[in-house]
């Protein structure tokens, strides 16, 4: 859905549901997932419908993902780091995660 403009920035690797994806320094979790072609980042706690990043500016809360074990993080506001473990969030968040 998105391609990278030129070859800027150093690359790093993170995982989404256990699968490695490449990202750039300067990416957010949401932009890295979009660039990797990941369809959706969560399913809703109400109906289970799939959702993907929508506003990319921190207001819509559609890009909620689990980052390094902490659920409901706004993917568009979290800068990527080497080795980061991202999980798509399925339905309601589990208490304690």
């Amino acid at each position: 859905m998105f391609k990278r403009l030129g070859d800027t920035g150093a690359t790093l690797t993170l995982s989404v549901d256990g699968k490695p994806i490449r990202a750039r320094i300067g990416d957010t979790v949401a932009s890295a997932m979009l660039h990797a072609g990941i369809d959706h980042c969560r399913t809703t706690p109400v109906s289970g419908a799939p959702r993907a990043p929508y506003c990319l500016m921190g207001v819509c809360f559609e890009c909620l993902v689990t980052v390094d074990g902490v659920g409901s993080r706004q993917g568009c506001l979290v800068p990527v780091r080497e080795g980061m473990k991202i999980e798509t969030q399925i339905g309601k968040r589990e208490a304690g995660r």
């Binding site: 859905m1 998105f2 391609k3 990278r4 403009l5 030129g6 800027t8 920035g9 750039r24 300067g26 990416d27 957010t28 932009s31 979009l34 660039h35 369809d39 959706h40 799939p50 959702r51 993907a52 990043p53 929508y54 506003c55 990319l56 500016m57 568009c76």
Partner: peptide
């Protein structure tokens, strides 16, 4: 999924160089 705001796409372009 696949529906986004235009502003969102612009943010991806400005901050991450994604088109």
């Amino acid at each position: 999924p696949g529906v986004m705001t235009a502003g969102g796409a612009q943010t991806l372009l400005k901050a991450q160089g994604l088109v």
